[in-house]
Amino acid sequence: MSRIDRRFAELKAAGRTGLIPFVTAGDPAPQHAVALMHALVEAGADVIELGVPFSDPMADGPVIQHASERAIEKGVGLGDVLRWVAEFRQRDAQTPIVLMGYLNPIEIHGYARFAAEAVQAGVDGVLIVDCPLEESAVLQPLKDAGLQQILLAAPTTAPLRMVQLCGSAQGFLYYVSFAGITGAARLSTGDIAARVADIRAKSKAPVAVGFGVRDAQSAKAIAGFADAVVIGSALVERLAGASDVEDIATRAKGFLAPIRQALDA
């Protein structure tokens, strides 16, 4: 059983909603990237989504785009991200890590080489935003190495295609809660509830809901019907500008603690 599958099984057994924070690797401070990951776990993260910086993040909003730009400015690349995961694994063998990003950095690194290095480092899954199911033949070396491909589903996904996605989902299915981009401030809970119920009925994998989740209140609203909640832009925004390791950890915990509480209440 993969680390991701085991984690969701544990959550289900405990009757808890998972908390999946997203941070851009190397932002706000590359030298504290590993410390930040540990802080996320201490604040109650069940799975960590680690963004691999890319120069042209087409599907992300300005907050995550800027975080990517800051990290790239500081020289952060895929090799650093893998090194940080390996370092994180020295102290944490339990928390699943999903690398989230775009295809080009992996393509240039080489699929087979990336697959071997990622597994070696302790990565559990990849969510490649611009690699839909139709194009994912290139990811075969990753699957062969045991990395799970996390798929996205959207409100615009057609019914037939949704069945396909649900059938192919590994680890968890990431439902983007509206048809915009990451970090926008619109969320109709009723709509999401109905769609997610439908998807959960079809999907063998658990369903995580993200895009537009900003605080304890919006997270709590989703907790009623999702297996996990993903929080990205709002957290990245809170961390932006911090450089001191204490400050980074305090901000991460200060942001996530009320959300964890709300999910568990």
Partner: peptide
């Protein structure tokens, strides 16, 4: 090909 996010697949 079509290397885009899921949200663009339907459009």
């Amino acid at each position: 090909g079509s290397y885009v996010a899921e949200t663009l697949m339907a459009p």
